[in-house]
């Protein structure tokens, strides 16, 4: 298993118990969607994996290495193996697109090189190629705050990928985007994961979007895993277990599948996206 999370618990200083002993394993190249209501602990969960948030107890293993114990340089080295994509893009707005993408290489270069923006030419070339891959090749010298929301998220994706990560941690990538751009961004993330055999955990509000693009769905409620399985398994009863009582017939895949013959296999699921 490339990522093994066991008994992950987080209690905030305020006393809130955000995660209650979460167990989760992710195989190499596997993409999972983490769904659940606001406050279920999705953001805390992925931040505990790269230790932006300190877990209270539990263990996170990345390809066998225990992340939870690391400090200083070793922790930074572990972080650069995990690319992160954020809800509000989290680009440094006053830096250019290229500087933002290259900041993904900070874990690999020394201070003075980064201070003078003298990144190794291979890094710059890699960043430029990735910008081309996400469709923003000509934007490298634009300032990040000149871009639209969808374009910013593409830069965010390039910044995460330029790290050469083994795992992507994706926090609500589409929550600030319109429906069409949301689909394009989800499609891009899933395609890139497949191209690079990259594992990913995608926090996402939008159940339908998760079902469209991802083959394994994990439902989190009040800091506990209450569902782990295929998107077809999200029956109205399961959705009620995750989110609480509501009329789920529009979101439940069984109903939609009957209506228009939904994707049967993962291959079809991905084909449908292209």
């Amino acid at each position: 298993m490339m990522l093994e999370v066991t008994g992950l618990t987080k209690r905030y200083p305020t006393g809130d118990l955000a995660l209650k002993g979460v167990d989760l394993t992710v195989a190499a190249g596997e993409v999972i969607a983490l769904i659940g209501p606001s406050g279920a602990g999705k953001s805390t969960f992925i931040r505990c994996i790269n230790r932006l948030v300190e877990p209270t107890s539990g263990r996170v293993r990345l390809n066998g290495e225990d992340i939870t114990r690391l400090k200083g340089r070793a922790l930074r080295r572990a972080r650069r193996r995990m690319g992160m994509i954020f809800q509000e893009y989290a680009l440094v707005e006053r830096l250019t697109v290229m500087e933002n993408v290259l900041s993904g290489r900070l874990g690999y270069v020394g201070f003075w090189r980064s201070w003078w923006r003298r990144f190794p030419p291979e890094d710059v070339a890699k960043a430029y190629d990735l910008l081309g891959r996400v469709g923003l090749a000509e934007f490298y010298d634009k300032r990040a705050d000149e871009l639209s929301g969808g374009q910013r998220q593409r830069v965010g994706i390039a910044r995460a990928l330029v790290q050469d990560p083994e795992l992507l941690l994706v926090d609500e990538p589409t929550a600030s985007l319109d429906p069409k751009t949301s689909r394009q961004i989800m499609r891009l993330i899933c395609e890139l994961c497949r191209e690079r055999q990259l594992a990913a955990i995608i926090n996402i509000h939008d159940v339908v979007l998760a079902q469209m693009f991802v083959a394994r769905i994990v439902g989190l409620r009040d800091g506990e895993v209450v569902y782990d399985g295929r998107p077809e398994g999200l029956t109205p009863e399961v959705l009620t277990r995750i989110y609480g009582e509501e009329d789920w017939t529009a979101a439940a895949p069984s109903a939609r599948a009957q209506a228009r013959g939904g994707p049967e296999t993962d291959e079809e699921r991905l084909e449908g996206l292209v």
């Binding site: 790269n50 932006l52 930074r76 080295r77 572990a78 972080r79 650069r80 193996r81 995990m82 992160m84 954020f86 809800q87 509000e88 989290a90 680009l91 440094v92 707005e93 006053r94 830096l95 500087e99 900041s103 993904g104 290489r105 900070l106 874990g107 690999y108 201070f111 980064s114 201070w115 965010g156 910044r159 790290q163 941690l169």
Partner: peptide, 25 residues
């Protein structure tokens, strides 16, 4: 905060974090 957090998530060292995450802002 999220801009600075994003820079920290790349594995940047503390001085790099200052220069990329804080200083431009």
């Amino acid at each position: 905060r999220d801009q600075a957090e994003a820079v920290r998530a790349t594995g940047a060292s503390w001085p790099q974090w200052l220069v990329y995450g804080i200083q431009p802002q």
